[in-house]
């Protein structure tokens, strides 16, 4: 399985994502820059977290209009897996690859802590190595993770199993609607989530609950 990591000015979790993909797949991902209008032939494209373009205008808004995101959209339409973490999730939403919007946390505070996540759908390319309903731990670090979608979109997301991760056991850190932490597109190949699974993949991180997400996507046996 080959992967690519999208690089944009202001991202700061790119090296964590590269390290996670390298350690889990055994092969370093290729990197693509914001101005690249083509992405090499890969199975998985990851958009890491951070503060692309300083979060100017809205989180992810400028990044979503860069040439590389047109290339990501084209690859996604062909069925290539795309994962956006934190700012990467915000970029996917701004690019229209996922529905809804990510708004300022209701606390108005930046939250940096560990939360519990429920696997709301274990039947996706990204979660098949988890058990349905399983509770895992994951770090979060964001200021704008408050997921919002209009009632009709929300009904569709819930009805079609597109809510993949939910904050569990009262750990919702941002006020997101229905405790939504991560969603997938209708086609099932584009995932966005606010938590950072790439930061919990080995003992040195204090746990490896995030590892199965990458193993699922990369088709690696547990």
């Amino acid at each position: 399985m080959k992967s690519a990591v999208v690089l944009l000015p202001g991202l700061n979790r790119d090296r964590d994502m590269i390290a996670a993909l390298t350690k889990i797949s055994g092969t370093p991902p290729v990197t693509v820059w914001q101005t690249d209008s083509e992405i090499p032939d890969v199975d998985l494209i990851a958009i890491p977290g951070g503060f692309s373009f300083g979060d100017y205008l809205r989180c992810g808004a400028i990044a979503a209009r860069m040439p590389v995101m047109r290339a990501v959209s084209e690859m996604a339409a062909k069925g290539v897996m795309v994962i956006g973490v934190c700012n990467g999730f915000q970029i996917l939403v701004e690019a229209g690859l996922l529905p809804g919007a990510l708004m300022r946390n209701t606390s108005l505070k930046f939250v940096c802590r560990q939360v519990k996540l429920q696997i709301a759908n274990a039947n996706t390319m990204f979660t098949r190595r988890y058990q349905p309903g399983q509770i895992i731990r994951s770090p979060v670090a964001h200021h704008d993770g408050n997921y919002f979608a209009d009632a009709e979109t929300l009904r569709r997301l819930e009805g079609e199993g597109q809510v993949v991760f939910r904050y569990a056991e009262g750990t919702n850190p941002n006020g997101s609607i229905n405790d939504i932490a991560g969603i997938i597109n209708g086609q099932g190949n584009v995932l966005g989530l606010m938590p950072h699974p790439e930061n919990l993949i080995e003992a040195a991180h204090g746990g490896s609950d995030g590892r199965a997400l990458f193993e699922s996507a990369l088709g690696i046996a547990a």
Binding site: L57, R58, A61, R65, E94, P99, G100, A101, M103, F148, A149, D150
Partner: peptide, 9 residues
């Protein structure tokens, strides 16, 4: 429509 506003919200 394309940049300045996010018409979802």
């Amino acid at each position: 429509d394309k940049l300045l506003a996010n018409t979802v919200i």
